[in-house]
Design a protein around this nucleic acid. Structure first.
Lengths: 140, 140
DNA sequence: GGGCTAATTGTAATAATGTTGCATTTAGCC
DNA sequence: GGCTAAATGCAACATTATTACAATTAGCCC
Protein backbone atom coordinates (compact mmCIF):
# COMPACT_ATOMS: atom_id res chain seq x y z
CA UNK A 1 0.00 0.00 0.00
CA UNK A 2 1.02 3.55 -0.74
CA UNK A 3 0.08 4.52 2.80
CA UNK A 4 2.65 2.11 4.22
CA UNK A 5 5.40 3.61 2.11
CA UNK A 6 4.35 7.11 3.14
CA UNK A 7 4.53 6.11 6.78
CA UNK A 8 8.01 4.68 6.26
CA UNK A 9 9.07 7.91 4.60
CA UNK A 10 7.81 9.99 7.50
CA UNK A 11 9.30 7.66 10.08
CA UNK A 12 12.69 8.39 8.50
CA UNK A 13 12.15 12.14 8.64
CA UNK A 14 11.03 12.69 5.05
CA UNK A 15 7.96 14.67 4.10
CA UNK A 16 4.78 13.20 2.66
CA UNK A 17 4.52 15.40 -0.42
CA UNK A 18 2.08 15.25 -3.31
CA UNK A 19 4.75 14.33 -5.89
CA UNK A 20 5.92 11.42 -3.75
CA UNK A 21 2.40 10.12 -3.36
CA UNK A 22 1.82 10.39 -7.09
CA UNK A 23 4.95 8.42 -7.95
CA UNK A 24 4.12 5.75 -5.40
CA UNK A 25 0.58 5.46 -6.74
CA UNK A 26 1.77 4.99 -10.31
CA UNK A 27 4.31 2.35 -9.29
CA UNK A 28 1.73 0.51 -7.25
CA UNK A 29 -0.97 0.53 -9.89
CA UNK A 30 1.21 -0.29 -12.85
CA UNK A 31 3.02 -3.33 -11.44
CA UNK A 32 5.58 -3.12 -14.22
CA UNK A 33 9.06 -1.65 -14.30
CA UNK A 34 8.82 2.03 -15.20
CA UNK A 35 11.51 4.48 -16.17
CA UNK A 36 11.43 8.02 -14.74
CA UNK A 37 10.10 9.28 -18.05
CA UNK A 38 7.49 6.51 -18.19
CA UNK A 39 6.16 7.80 -14.90
CA UNK A 40 6.20 11.35 -16.19
CA UNK A 41 4.22 10.34 -19.28
CA UNK A 42 1.66 8.35 -17.31
CA UNK A 43 1.03 11.24 -14.96
CA UNK A 44 0.79 13.73 -17.78
CA UNK A 45 -1.87 11.57 -19.42
CA UNK A 46 -3.85 11.99 -16.22
CA UNK A 47 -3.44 15.72 -16.26
CA UNK A 48 -0.84 15.70 -13.48
CA UNK A 49 2.48 17.32 -14.12
CA UNK A 50 5.73 16.38 -12.42
CA UNK A 51 9.13 17.62 -13.45
CA UNK A 52 11.44 14.81 -14.50
CA UNK A 53 14.13 16.02 -12.13
CA UNK A 54 11.70 15.59 -9.27
CA UNK A 55 10.89 12.07 -10.38
CA UNK A 56 14.55 11.12 -10.51
CA UNK A 57 15.03 12.41 -7.00
CA UNK A 58 11.97 10.65 -5.65
CA UNK A 59 13.01 7.33 -7.19
CA UNK A 60 16.49 7.66 -5.74
CA UNK A 61 15.01 8.30 -2.33
CA UNK A 62 12.60 5.37 -2.56
CA UNK A 63 15.43 3.06 -3.60
CA UNK A 64 17.66 4.21 -0.78
CA UNK A 65 14.88 3.32 1.65
CA UNK A 66 14.20 0.02 -0.14
CA UNK A 67 10.68 1.13 -0.97
CA UNK A 68 11.41 0.76 -4.66
CA UNK A 69 13.89 -1.21 -6.66
CA UNK A 70 15.67 -0.66 -9.93
CA UNK A 71 15.20 -3.64 -12.18
CA UNK A 72 18.29 -5.28 -13.47
CA UNK A 73 17.71 -5.93 -17.12
CA UNK A 74 15.48 -3.04 -18.08
CA UNK A 75 16.63 -0.34 -15.69
CA UNK A 76 13.00 0.37 -14.83
CA UNK A 77 11.77 0.95 -11.30
CA UNK A 78 9.28 -1.11 -9.34
CA UNK A 79 7.71 -0.77 -5.94
CA UNK A 80 9.18 -3.24 -3.49
CA UNK A 81 6.57 -5.48 -1.98
CA UNK A 82 8.85 -7.57 0.19
CA UNK A 83 11.78 -6.90 2.42
CA UNK A 84 15.13 -8.10 1.23
CA UNK A 85 16.17 -11.44 2.62
CA UNK A 86 19.85 -11.83 3.32
CA UNK A 87 20.38 -8.82 1.07
CA UNK A 88 18.72 -10.65 -1.78
CA UNK A 89 16.00 -9.37 -4.12
CA UNK A 90 14.46 -11.74 -6.61
CA UNK A 91 12.07 -10.86 -9.42
CA UNK A 92 10.19 -12.66 -12.12
CA UNK A 93 9.45 -10.67 -15.26
CA UNK A 94 6.93 -12.00 -17.74
CA UNK A 95 8.17 -11.60 -21.29
CA UNK A 96 4.64 -11.55 -22.59
CA UNK A 97 2.63 -9.26 -20.35
CA UNK A 98 5.54 -7.46 -18.68
CA UNK A 99 4.19 -8.04 -15.19
CA UNK A 100 6.68 -8.46 -12.40
CA UNK A 101 6.44 -10.45 -9.24
CA UNK A 102 8.82 -10.23 -6.35
CA UNK A 103 9.57 -13.31 -4.31
CA UNK A 104 11.94 -14.46 -1.65
CA UNK A 105 13.40 -17.59 -0.22
CA UNK A 106 15.82 -17.51 2.63
CA UNK A 107 17.27 -20.93 1.96
CA UNK A 108 17.93 -20.25 -1.72
CA UNK A 109 19.63 -16.96 -0.93
CA UNK A 110 21.82 -18.63 1.63
CA UNK A 111 22.85 -21.30 -0.84
CA UNK A 112 23.75 -18.71 -3.44
CA UNK A 113 25.80 -16.70 -1.01
CA UNK A 114 27.58 -19.83 0.14
CA UNK A 115 28.34 -20.64 -3.46
CA UNK A 116 29.95 -17.24 -4.01
CA UNK A 117 31.83 -17.66 -0.76
CA UNK A 118 33.44 -20.80 -2.18
CA UNK A 119 34.99 -18.55 -4.82
CA UNK A 120 36.31 -16.30 -2.09
CA UNK A 121 33.65 -13.72 -2.86
CA UNK A 122 31.94 -11.92 0.02
CA UNK A 123 28.44 -11.01 -1.04
CA UNK A 124 26.66 -7.92 0.21
CA UNK A 125 23.77 -7.67 -2.20
CA UNK A 126 22.36 -10.20 -4.52
CA UNK A 127 20.02 -9.38 -7.39
CA UNK A 128 18.33 -12.07 -9.34
CA UNK A 129 16.00 -11.72 -12.26
CA UNK A 130 14.08 -14.40 -14.08
CA UNK A 131 12.55 -13.76 -17.44
CA UNK A 132 10.02 -16.15 -18.86
CA UNK A 133 6.27 -16.60 -18.81
CA UNK A 134 3.97 -16.09 -15.87
CA UNK A 135 1.36 -18.72 -15.15
CA UNK A 136 -1.42 -16.80 -16.89
CA UNK A 137 0.50 -16.14 -20.10
CA UNK A 138 1.87 -19.69 -20.17
CA UNK A 139 -1.61 -21.18 -20.36
CA UNK A 140 -2.39 -19.24 -23.55
CA UNK B 1 40.68 -15.11 -26.23
CA UNK B 2 39.81 -12.53 -28.85
CA UNK B 3 40.81 -15.01 -31.55
CA UNK B 4 38.15 -17.47 -30.37
CA UNK B 5 35.45 -14.82 -30.61
CA UNK B 6 36.62 -13.81 -34.06
CA UNK B 7 36.43 -17.40 -35.19
CA UNK B 8 32.89 -17.68 -33.84
CA UNK B 9 31.96 -14.52 -35.70
CA UNK B 10 33.31 -15.86 -38.97
CA UNK B 11 31.73 -19.26 -38.46
CA UNK B 12 28.37 -17.48 -38.34
CA UNK B 13 29.05 -15.57 -41.55
CA UNK B 14 30.18 -12.25 -40.01
CA UNK B 15 33.32 -10.44 -41.05
CA UNK B 16 36.45 -10.10 -38.95
CA UNK B 17 36.77 -6.33 -39.10
CA UNK B 18 39.18 -3.99 -37.32
CA UNK B 19 36.46 -2.30 -35.26
CA UNK B 20 35.20 -5.65 -34.02
CA UNK B 21 38.68 -6.74 -33.01
CA UNK B 22 39.26 -3.46 -31.20
CA UNK B 23 36.04 -3.75 -29.20
CA UNK B 24 36.78 -7.38 -28.29
CA UNK B 25 40.30 -6.45 -27.19
CA UNK B 26 39.07 -3.68 -24.92
CA UNK B 27 36.44 -5.93 -23.34
CA UNK B 28 38.97 -8.69 -22.81
CA UNK B 29 41.66 -6.48 -21.30
CA UNK B 30 39.44 -4.40 -19.09
CA UNK B 31 37.49 -7.17 -17.38
CA UNK B 32 34.95 -4.69 -16.13
CA UNK B 33 31.52 -3.77 -17.43
CA UNK B 34 31.89 -1.05 -20.04
CA UNK B 35 29.29 1.14 -21.68
CA UNK B 36 29.53 1.85 -25.41
CA UNK B 37 30.88 5.31 -24.62
CA UNK B 38 33.37 3.87 -22.13
CA UNK B 39 34.77 1.78 -24.96
CA UNK B 40 34.86 4.78 -27.24
CA UNK B 41 36.80 6.79 -24.64
CA UNK B 42 39.28 4.01 -23.94
CA UNK B 43 40.02 3.59 -27.62
CA UNK B 44 40.34 7.32 -28.18
CA UNK B 45 42.90 7.48 -25.38
CA UNK B 46 44.91 4.98 -27.40
CA UNK B 47 44.66 7.04 -30.54
CA UNK B 48 42.06 4.77 -32.10
CA UNK B 49 38.80 6.23 -33.24
CA UNK B 50 35.53 4.35 -33.51
CA UNK B 51 32.16 5.94 -34.10
CA UNK B 52 29.77 5.33 -31.23
CA UNK B 53 27.12 4.01 -33.62
CA UNK B 54 29.56 1.35 -34.73
CA UNK B 55 30.25 0.36 -31.14
CA UNK B 56 26.55 0.02 -30.40
CA UNK B 57 26.13 -2.23 -33.39
CA UNK B 58 29.12 -4.37 -32.54
CA UNK B 59 27.95 -4.85 -28.96
CA UNK B 60 24.49 -5.84 -30.15
CA UNK B 61 26.00 -8.38 -32.47
CA UNK B 62 28.30 -9.81 -29.80
CA UNK B 63 25.38 -10.15 -27.38
CA UNK B 64 23.21 -11.84 -29.97
CA UNK B 65 25.97 -14.42 -30.45
CA UNK B 66 26.51 -14.74 -26.68
CA UNK B 67 30.06 -13.47 -27.02
CA UNK B 68 29.31 -10.56 -24.74
CA UNK B 69 26.76 -9.91 -22.06
CA UNK B 70 24.94 -6.85 -20.81
CA UNK B 71 25.30 -6.51 -17.07
CA UNK B 72 22.18 -6.24 -15.02
CA UNK B 73 22.75 -3.46 -12.55
CA UNK B 74 25.06 -1.17 -14.50
CA UNK B 75 23.99 -1.82 -18.07
CA UNK B 76 27.65 -2.20 -19.00
CA UNK B 77 28.92 -4.88 -21.33
CA UNK B 78 31.35 -7.69 -20.56
CA UNK B 79 32.93 -10.39 -22.63
CA UNK B 80 31.36 -13.76 -21.91
CA UNK B 81 33.85 -16.30 -20.74
CA UNK B 82 31.44 -19.14 -20.12
CA UNK B 83 28.48 -20.58 -21.93
CA UNK B 84 25.11 -20.12 -20.32
CA UNK B 85 24.00 -23.07 -18.22
CA UNK B 86 20.29 -23.80 -18.31
CA UNK B 87 19.82 -20.29 -19.65
CA UNK B 88 21.50 -18.85 -16.58
CA UNK B 89 24.27 -16.28 -16.38
CA UNK B 90 25.80 -15.48 -13.04
CA UNK B 91 28.24 -12.71 -12.24
CA UNK B 92 30.12 -11.40 -9.24
CA UNK B 93 30.92 -7.70 -9.26
CA UNK B 94 33.45 -6.35 -6.79
CA UNK B 95 32.24 -3.10 -5.25
CA UNK B 96 35.80 -2.02 -4.57
CA UNK B 97 37.84 -2.75 -7.69
CA UNK B 98 34.94 -3.18 -10.11
CA UNK B 99 36.24 -6.48 -11.45
CA UNK B 100 33.71 -9.00 -12.60
CA UNK B 101 33.87 -12.75 -12.62
CA UNK B 102 31.47 -15.02 -14.38
CA UNK B 103 30.65 -18.35 -12.89
CA UNK B 104 28.24 -21.20 -13.33
CA UNK B 105 26.68 -24.03 -11.45
CA UNK B 106 24.24 -26.35 -13.07
CA UNK B 107 22.73 -27.55 -9.83
CA UNK B 108 22.10 -24.07 -8.47
CA UNK B 109 20.48 -22.94 -11.71
CA UNK B 110 18.23 -25.94 -11.68
CA UNK B 111 17.17 -25.22 -8.12
CA UNK B 112 16.37 -21.63 -8.95
CA UNK B 113 14.29 -22.56 -11.97
CA UNK B 114 12.45 -25.17 -9.92
CA UNK B 115 11.75 -22.52 -7.34
CA UNK B 116 10.20 -20.22 -9.94
CA UNK B 117 8.25 -23.14 -11.32
CA UNK B 118 6.62 -23.56 -7.93
CA UNK B 119 5.15 -20.11 -8.42
CA UNK B 120 3.82 -21.20 -11.81
CA UNK B 121 6.55 -19.24 -13.57
CA UNK B 122 8.25 -20.77 -16.60
CA UNK B 123 11.79 -19.47 -16.77
CA UNK B 124 13.60 -18.91 -20.04
CA UNK B 125 16.52 -16.79 -18.95
CA UNK B 126 17.91 -16.20 -15.55
CA UNK B 127 20.30 -13.41 -14.67
CA UNK B 128 21.96 -13.27 -11.32
CA UNK B 129 24.33 -10.68 -10.03
CA UNK B 130 26.23 -10.59 -6.77
CA UNK B 131 27.80 -7.42 -5.53
CA UNK B 132 30.30 -7.53 -2.72
CA UNK B 133 34.04 -7.87 -2.30
CA UNK B 134 36.32 -10.13 -4.27
CA UNK B 135 38.88 -12.17 -2.39
CA UNK B 136 41.71 -9.71 -3.06
CA UNK B 137 39.81 -6.63 -1.97
CA UNK B 138 38.37 -8.40 1.07
CA UNK B 139 41.83 -9.06 2.50
CA UNK B 140 42.67 -5.36 2.50
C1' DG C 1 -6.01 29.60 11.22
C1' DG C 2 -1.38 32.41 9.80
C1' DG C 3 3.68 32.68 9.77
C1' DC C 4 8.35 30.40 9.80
C1' DT C 5 11.99 27.48 7.94
C1' DA C 6 14.17 23.61 6.20
C1' DA C 7 13.00 20.34 2.92
C1' DT C 8 11.35 19.69 -1.42
C1' DT C 9 10.14 20.82 -6.05
C1' DG C 10 10.48 23.47 -10.44
C1' DT C 11 13.26 25.84 -14.01
C1' DA C 12 16.69 26.28 -17.28
C1' DA C 13 20.64 24.98 -19.21
C1' DT C 14 23.63 21.42 -20.37
C1' DA C 15 25.69 16.79 -20.66
C1' DA C 16 25.41 12.11 -21.80
C1' DT C 17 23.44 8.31 -24.09
C1' DG C 18 20.80 6.04 -28.02
C1' DT C 19 18.74 5.78 -32.70
C1' DT C 20 17.92 6.41 -37.71
C1' DG C 21 18.80 7.05 -42.75
C1' DC C 22 22.05 7.37 -46.00
C1' DA C 23 26.88 7.93 -47.99
C1' DT C 24 31.37 5.78 -47.83
C1' DT C 25 34.57 2.19 -46.99
C1' DT C 26 36.27 -2.53 -46.59
C1' DA C 27 36.58 -7.84 -45.94
C1' DG C 28 36.11 -11.82 -48.35
C1' DC C 29 35.43 -13.67 -52.72
C1' DC C 30 36.30 -14.55 -57.70
C1' DG D 1 43.34 -6.36 -58.69
C1' DG D 2 38.29 -5.75 -59.09
C1' DC D 3 33.54 -6.77 -57.38
C1' DT D 4 29.78 -6.76 -54.01
C1' DA D 5 27.43 -7.35 -49.87
C1' DA D 6 28.50 -6.28 -45.34
C1' DA D 7 30.11 -3.10 -42.28
C1' DT D 8 31.40 1.45 -40.84
C1' DG D 9 31.15 6.55 -40.68
C1' DC D 10 28.54 10.69 -40.69
C1' DA D 11 24.97 13.92 -39.58
C1' DA D 12 21.02 14.90 -37.55
C1' DC D 13 18.02 14.02 -34.08
C1' DA D 14 15.54 11.87 -29.94
C1' DT D 15 15.76 10.47 -25.41
C1' DT D 16 17.53 10.24 -20.91
C1' DA D 17 20.24 12.15 -17.04
C1' DT D 18 22.61 15.80 -14.17
C1' DT D 19 23.57 20.36 -12.08
C1' DA D 20 22.97 24.95 -9.90
C1' DC D 21 19.87 27.92 -8.29
C1' DA D 22 15.14 30.06 -7.66
C1' DA D 23 10.41 29.20 -6.06
C1' DT D 24 7.27 26.55 -3.42
C1' DT D 25 5.38 23.76 0.34
C1' DA D 26 4.92 20.35 4.45
C1' DG D 27 5.29 20.23 9.11
C1' DC D 28 5.81 22.84 13.08
C1' DC D 29 5.12 26.63 16.22
C1' DC D 30 2.11 29.95 18.19
Amino acid sequence: MVQDSIRTLQAQGHKATKPRKLVLEVLEETEKPLSPYDIKRILRARGKYLNHVTIYRILNLLCSLNLAHKMLSSGGFVKCSLDAIEGCHRFMVCQHCGAIQEFADKELCQEENDFAQNFGFHTEHHLSEFSGLCSQCYRK
